[in-house]
C-alpha cells in the first residue's frame, strides 16, 4: 500500500516507469497478452447478443443486437434453477471450508499435542492427491449413502480443505505467542481467543480463502456431472453441458448460457478482488 502511494506521488520518474522504446515494447506486450485473454470473452459476448444465424455468418463484428437469445437461454436452459443449485452448494461449501480450516489451522498452529508434525504432514500430503484419483471411491460412497442428485452429495466431499488449513496455519504462526498467553491469563479459552483475537487479525486471509472456495466450487464441472442424473439437480456448469449438447444448431444460445453463468462470478470477483489479492499476498511484502 505504502509503495503504491509513493509511486503515484512521484509520477513519471524512477525505474518503475520506463520511457520511450522500452515503454512501447512493454505496453505492446501487455496489450497482446490482454488481447489473448479477452478475445474469447469478447466473442462469447458478441455471439450471445446476436440473433439466429448471424453468428455463423459473421462471428466477430458486433452485429444486430438482441436480448432475445439471453432470454431464450434462461428459459430453455433452465438456468435459473441451475444457478440456484450452484449458489446453494457454493455457499455451503464455502462456509464449511472456512470453519473447518479455521479450527484445524488453529489446532496445528497454537496447540501442542503429540504427533502434531506428523499429522500435519499427512494433512498436507492430501494436497498431492488430485480429485480424479478419489473420484470413483467418492462417487460410490455418495451413492451408497443415497445422496445422488442431492445438495449434500454435491457438497460433502469438499467440506474440508488442506489448502485452506495450510494457508490459515501459516498466518496463525505469525501471530505472537504472547497474545495467546496474555489471553490465557485473562481466562479466555481457545474458542474465545479465536473469536476475539485471532479471527480479526487474519480477516484478509479468511476473506481470500472464502472467495477462493466459492470460485472453485462454482466452477466445478466433473463432480456435479458425475453425481447428477436428473436435469433439475445440475449445477450451472454441468447444466451448460446439457444446454450445449441439446442445442447444437444454436451456438448463440450456448454462448448466451455461458454469459449468464459467468455473470455471478464476475460480480463476486469485482466486489471482492481487493480482498483476494490482499489475502493471498499477505506477508509476502513487508509494508
Amino acid at each position: 500500500m505504502a509503495t503504491d502511494t509513493r509511486a503515484a506521488a512521484i509520477p513519471a520518474v524512477g525505474f518503475d516507469r520506463p520511457r520511450g522504446w522500452r515503454a512501447l515494447g512493454r505496453y505492446s506486450l501487455l496489450l497482446f497478452v490482454a488481447f489473448l485473454v479477452l478475445f474469447p470473452i469478447y466473442t462469447t459476448i458478441v455471439a450471445a447478443l446476436k440473433p439466429g444465424n448471424e453468428v455463423l455468418n459473421d462471428p466477430l463484428r458486433p452485429g444486430p443486437f438482441t436480448l432475445d437469445v439471453l432470454r431464450d437461454a434462461w428459459s430453455t436452459g433452465r438456468l435459473g434453477r441451475y444457478l440456484l443449485n450452484s449458489f446453494v452448494v457454493a455457499i455451503v461449501v464455502t462456509v464449511c471450508q472456512v470453519v473447518t480450516s479455521l479450527l484445524a489451522a488453529y489446532a496445528f498452529a497454537m496447540l501442542d499435542f503429540p504427533g502434531r508434525t506428523l499429522l500435519f504432514g499427512v494433512f498436507l500430503a492430501t494436497l498431492l492427491v488430485p480429485l480424479e484419483v478419489t473420484l470413483v471411491v467418492n462417487r460410490r460412497l455418495i451413492d451408497s449413502l443415497g445422496w445422488l442428485n442431492t445438495y449434500q452429495g454435491l457438497a460433502a466431499p469438499f467440506l474440508a480443505t488442506a489448502f485452506g488449513t495450510f494457508l490459515l496455519r501459516q498466518v496463525f504462526l505469525t501471530l505472537p505467542r504472547d497474545l495467546r498467553d496474555a489471553a490465557a491469563i485473562d481466562g479466555v479459552g481457545h474458542l474465545g481467543f479465536l473469536r476475539h483475537v485471532a479471527i480479526p487479525l487474519v480477516r484478509p486471509t479468511l476473506g481470500a480463502l472464502a472467495l477462493f472456495s466459492f470460485l472453485s466450487t462454482w466452477n466445478q464441472y466433473l463432480w456435479p456431472n458425475l453425481i447428477t442424473t436428473e436435469a433439475d439437480k445440475n449445477t450451472v456448469q454441468s447444466g451448460l453441458r446439457l444446454l450445449a449438447s441439446t442445442n447444437l444448431d444454436e451456438p448463440n444460445l450456448v454462448m448466451a448460457g455461458t454469459v449468464i453463468a459467468a455473470i455471478p462470478i464476475f460480480v463476486v470477483l469485482i466486489v471482492f478482488q481487493r480482498q483476494l489479492v490482499r489475502g493471498l499476498t499477505a506477508g509476502a511484502v513487508k509494508g
Binding site: D143, S144, L148, N225, L226, T229, S245
Partner: peptide, 23 residues
C-alpha cells in the same frame, strides 16, 4: 426421461452406480 449427455456419460454413470441408483 433423463438426458445423461451422451452414451459415454451414460455408461460411466451406470457402471459406477449401485443397482438402486440405476434407472
Amino acid at each position: 426421461l433423463q438426458n445423461q449427455t451422451g452414451y459415454e456419460a451414460t455408461i460411466d454413470k451406470y457402471i459406477q452406480s449401485s443397482q438402486s441408483s440405476r434407472p
